[in-house]
Design a binder for these strands. Structure first.
Length: 506
RNA sequence: CGGGGCGUAGCACAGCCUGGUAGUGCGCACGGUUUGGGACCGUGAGGUCGCAAGUUCGAAUCUUGCCGCCCCGACCA
């Protein structure tokens, strides 16, 4: 016994560097470690800003591709607007200005000069002060609506369906990699329409696009709904959102779509002449998802062995690890596996054949698990003799030996099955962690345990804020698919027509 | 902005209390043995101990100031 105990103690430190913190013990440390160890991103030298590493960026690119295709299918075009927003633009829509004012980076000068007092140092050249400060965009409504004014004259110019992929900056007090960084990448759609109805349906259409993306690509079930007044986007009439449940029981807003009414059209004087030759303000929408989705992806599916990627977003869908002693064996293995690789690639599957001899197979197994590669194939001399190959699934951490004959087709199906399985698992988790609650005592107890709470709300800001103050729970959304029913507000006891979704949120 | 922690090799840390040769593990380079779940042996490279000032014969270590990072809260996609 003492021998084991001693040897365990002696080696503990070494092992510690190889295993992840337990998800159940320290969720945020577990999250940070996965992001780091799976090579998705790291904290940069710049406070609050992250470096997205190639593997992480490859996932983001897959997200971009899928979303971009969906935007194009729904008639949108990409464009690009400036990073800098003159302060006067930002001021024009009052609610908008108030909402973003306290988190803006401001450019006041355009030049540096050598410090006369200290060699090698630079100081701001006071002679380069800007007449008007430039704001680094926290979002682009202001610049874009200022531009739309010149683009829209007639009803024939509408609808205007534009999207841009860009970076934005919001000076957050506290940041977390992917979930809340000072600078982040996103897409922002900005559309203008002739009628309210059309703008409202655009708002809803894009929310549906996000939900479809979340569920079909990220394998992450979401609740669609509308934000309450307090949670609404600054400058919007209505904010719709998709809300996902993370494995620690906290909610994550994963996408928003705003109906802007005529707020920005009026602020920036964007009018068009309708068919009856009268001037009208256009109706606007804006909608966005960001690199926060990367955080959602990690927190929705991963486990104590690392990242779990849904096949549709995995940069490497299948990794093949050869197991051999001598060079000749590797050659034999390669000869047998090359046609399989070709077949997989022909089927549109991304494959990595890892012949790197720096690491042993065991190391590679652990490493690809950490990185969430959905399927791993192991093939050695024993397999060549038996005509088999080892197939390992990341989502279930299971292994089986299969005939190598027809393996490519098998894997094609398997990837689909894994995609489904990951989604079903996440859906089941959400269902098991969604609670219908009718009393305040129950509510208080349940919110401590996490999860979505469906409870009645009287529709007042006062109640919403009181609940938040007492429990830190916010109304994530007023869900679309929840049937109306008469009830009593869980806090105030006032009459209510519908349950809303409460949770503690990121 | 409050509360806590931390800055020593690429990474994780020890050394600091009680001042005197800068260390361990991982990683890295080279050579050899290994390879079906994170291999091993040997040799080697790698440091303005966060920055600045002070105390001292002498500072990673003591004092003061500053800077930065992380965690927990208040604000937020």
């Amino acid at each position: 016994m003492s021998h084991f105990a001693l040897s365990f103690l002696f080696h503990t430190k070494n092992y510690m560097s190889k295993i992840l913190p337990k998800r159940s013990e320290n969720y945020s440390e577990w999250y940070n470690e996965i992001v780091k160890r799976a090579d998705l991103a790291e904290n940069s030298a710049v406070r609050g800003c992250m470096v997205i590493k190639p593997y992480g960026y490859a996932i983001w690119e897959k997200m971009q591709r899928a979303l971009d295709d969906m935007f194009k299918e729904t008639g949108h075009q990409n464009a690009y607007f400036p990073l800098f927003v003159p302060k006067s633009f930002l001021e024009k829509e009052e609610g908008h200005a108030a909402g973003f004012a306290k988190e803006c980076a401001v450019v006041t000068h355009y030049r540096l000069k050598a410090d006369p007092n200290e060699k090698g140092k630079l100081i701001v050249d006071e002679n380069s002060k800007l007449e008007e400060e430039l704001i680094v965009r926290p979002t682009s409504e202001a610049v874009i609506w200022n531009t739309y004014k010149t683009w829209v004259q007639s009803w024939r110019d509408l609808p205007l369906l534009i999207n841009q992929w860009a970076n934005v900056v919001r000076w957050e007090m506290r940041t977390r990699v992917f979930l809340r960084t000072a600078e982040f990448l996103w897409q922002e759609g900005h559309t203008a329409h002739a009628t309210e109805e059309e703008a409202r349906s655009e708002t809803r259409q894009m929310l549906d696009v996000y939900a479809t993306f979340a569920e079909n690509f990220m394998a992450m079930p979401v609740i669609k709904g509308a934000k309450t007044e307090t949670e609404r986007f600054a400058g919007a009439v209505d904010t719709l959102c998709i809300e996902a449940l993370m494995q620690d029981g906290k909610a994550l807003q994963s996408g928003t779509s705003h109906f802007l009414g005529q707020n920005f059209a009026k602020a920036f004087d964007v009018q068009f002449v309708n068919k009856e030759n009268t001037l009208e303000y256009v109706w606007g929408t804006s909608w966005g998802v960001s690199t926060r989705l990367m955080g959602a992806l990690v927190m929705a599916h991963s486990d104590d062995n690392g990242l779990v990627l849904p096949p549709r977003l995995a940069p490497i869908q299948v990794v093949i690890v050869p197991i051999y002693r001598v060079e000749e064996d590797l050659q034999k293995i390669s000869e047998r596996i090359e046609p399989v690789i070709k077949e997989l690639k022909a089927g549109g599957i991304s494959v990595k054949y890892d012949t790197d001899d720096k690491y042993k197979p065991g190391y590679k197994f652990a490493e690809y698990e950490l990185r969430g590669v959905p399927v791993r194939l192991g093939i050695g001399m024993r397999d060549l003799e038996n005509g088999t190959i080892e197939v390992a699934r990341r989502d279930q951490l299971s292994k089986e030996s299969r005939p190598i004959e027809g393996i490519a087709n098998y894997i094609k199906d398997l990837l689909g099955e894994i995609q489904q399985n990951i989604y079903q698992k996440a859906l089941k988790f959400r269902e098991q962690n969604t609670f219908r609650v009718d009393t305040w005592e129950e509510f208080q107890a349940q919110i401590e345990k996490g999860g979505f709470i469906l409870a009645h709300w009287d529709g007042t800001v006062e109640t919403e804020e009181a609940i938040k103050a007492e429990t830190k729970a916010t109304i994530r959304c007023i869900p679309f698919d929840e049937a109306e029913e008469d009830g009593m507000d869980v806090y105030s006891g006032n009459p209510s027509k519908q349950r809303v979704v409460f949770a503690r949120a990121y």
